[in-house]
Design a protein around this nucleic acid. Sequence first.
DNA 1: GTTAGCAGTCAATGGGTGAGAGTGCTAAAA
DNA 2: TTTTAGCACTCTCACCCATTGACTGCTAAC
Lengths: 355, 355
Amino acid sequence: MSKELSERKKRILHALVDLYISTGQPVSSSDIQSKYLPEVSSATVRSELSALEALGYIEQPHTSAGRVPLKAAYKFYVDSISSSQTGEASLTDRETEIIRDRFFKRLERIEDMSKAAAKIISDATNYTSFCVEKSSMDIEIEEVKLVPLKGRKAVVLIVTDKGMLANKAIDLSDDVKGEYVDAASTLLNKVFAGRNLLELENFDLSEIDVEIKGFKDILDEVLQILRIYVSSHTDTVVVEGALKMLDYPEYSSVEDAKSFLSVIEDRDSMAQILSDDGSIELSVRIGKEDNGVDRCAIVTAAYKVGDEVVGKAGVIGPERMDYKKVIGVLELMKKTMSAVVDGTDRRITDGHKED
Amino acid sequence: MSKELSERKKRILHALVDLYISTGQPVSSSDIQSKYLPEVSSATVRSELSALEALGYIEQPHTSAGRVPLKAAYKFYVDSISSSQTGEASLTDRETEIIRDRFFKRLERIEDMSKAAAKIISDATNYTSFCVEKSSMDIEIEEVKLVPLKGRKAVVLIVTDKGMLANKAIDLSDDVKGEYVDAASTLLNKVFAGRNLLELENFDLSEIDVEIKGFKDILDEVLQILRIYVSSHTDTVVVEGALKMLDYPEYSSVEDAKSFLSVIEDRDSMAQILSDDGSIELSVRIGKEDNGVDRCAIVTAAYKVGDEVVGKAGVIGPERMDYKKVIGVLELMKKTMSAVVDGTDRRITDGHKED
DNA sequence: GTTAGCAGTCAATGGGTGAGAGTGCTAAAA
DNA sequence: TTTTAGCACTCTCACCCATTGACTGCTAAC
């Protein structure tokens, strides 16, 4: 904070976080000296460490213990790795290939993308992962059709530019004559075709300048179907590997585990947490004040089409997580997913790989 | 086992299980004596206890500890409560009313029944609960319709006696003429209408004695839609209150908690476990050999329509669970749900309560 | 500014001890 | 023969204490 650190302090801080991430134990001056700075003595490292402690980067759990990174130290660490290189370089070519491969292999239908991505991210990083699909309401109704069935039933079909939206069987109270159905279909199309789903939220039937006559019932019915769809269609959150967090000593008490899991399992609180970071491309949030989950770090990547964020993928793990790897995996997935959503890479839409 | 226990042994065994269920601690002879058998001395209880130990009902964790029930003791206990009274009597009228009330209040659409029931059972008992809905394949196709849309797209609508089944937009490669669509619709109906979904599994198009001509593509398409539906439509399992198990000291180590949760979270293994008990009306399975989950008891109730099991509801908890209450709640839910599914109690199908 | 050496601090470990809980056994009473 | 009171025995658990080992901070020399 405040002023720029000396080069040696930077090296020492980086070393300390590195060591702490891999061991989870407080790091001693001699550890740092022997593994990262053989050219100086441990006493020198010690004096640098007390300086860093005064600056608020690290602390000692107790007098005779080594040092543990604080939030500021993690921030510094994350900054230094994401500026020094593109994160993806932290994965070997082989790893990159395996991940890409698994992604396309699992992807038979495009709807499974979130699930597949979450699974792969969790497997590759060994942390709990999640994916959010923003359910865009920017859907245009192309066509509404009333299809008569046997008996007095009929089906309302609503076709949109993004595919089929909803269909529902309804009872027609009147006797169904072909003319009625045809007329109703025509009317429904006049009223709804070309409209956007968002417009419908405050939509008043009486504003429409078409003849409604005996069709009010059916119009209401369709409107209700659409409204139910809009209100029920919230962002979908999928979580993978929730139990992986229990492998880390940070969460080795049942109470901690329980409080973590109860947040993770609750889709609403997850959606809340994930929406907090706006639409930053790559966001790293550490600690409860930052992300709402105690003693955790959350890394999210937003994937976009054009300028619009269409979803997010991320990892939630202990503060001392392997940021290098996580950022690498997320950047790779981000690229891959953006390409698929975008249509640049359509390997899966026809059901098989091309390469 | 082997021989019938003396009346006093029965009382002592019952008392021991009762005490162990409420405290979770090994039960001493004097506990039993003071709270359940004041007319004899603790020494007498002691000698009875060693007899029961020899018979395999109970054991001592170590020499100077009290006794703990074994599986045989729980079996005895469950038998004695379910024969002595109908379990439901173990709930007060007030409790019964509250549970019924909550059930109907939550139930706005019939599809939510499993979820609602699981939630209520879990809340009422404080254990992890689950519901399984058997997805019956006994569905008859009533009508197949090919509905042309704008452009070259069309929708296949499949109507069954149980409601709408599936619909899928397809591309028609040929130019779409009204006649083609009509002819195809007629053909599709000839082929599929009146058939049961189960027949379709090994269904050979060439066996059909209608003219196929140029319609093979569309027939294949529909057949595939149906097959995908059949294969993807497995029993649905919902689980509620998975984390409640962590409140019990039996699962206070993270490893135990993890192994429990990983079984519970996995729908497949749950479905497996739950199908194991056949269609017993009320099944109590204790211990790993019995139910596949370590140090747990599983109580399930099957709800039926006529003779057919259409679903199950149950509780999974520590071996020393409050069987009385659990059995009471499950019997109540079983009655209530059977009535709803059966159609005897249709309070919810028209969207509001009647009483 | 850096280093070696040393004293000081603290957590963790392990052995020892005493209290408490509960049993089994035995001999006497019912 | 069954039940009971009394007592010795066993085992766990909690606590204390001393020892160990891991670090640090300080100081004086380089």
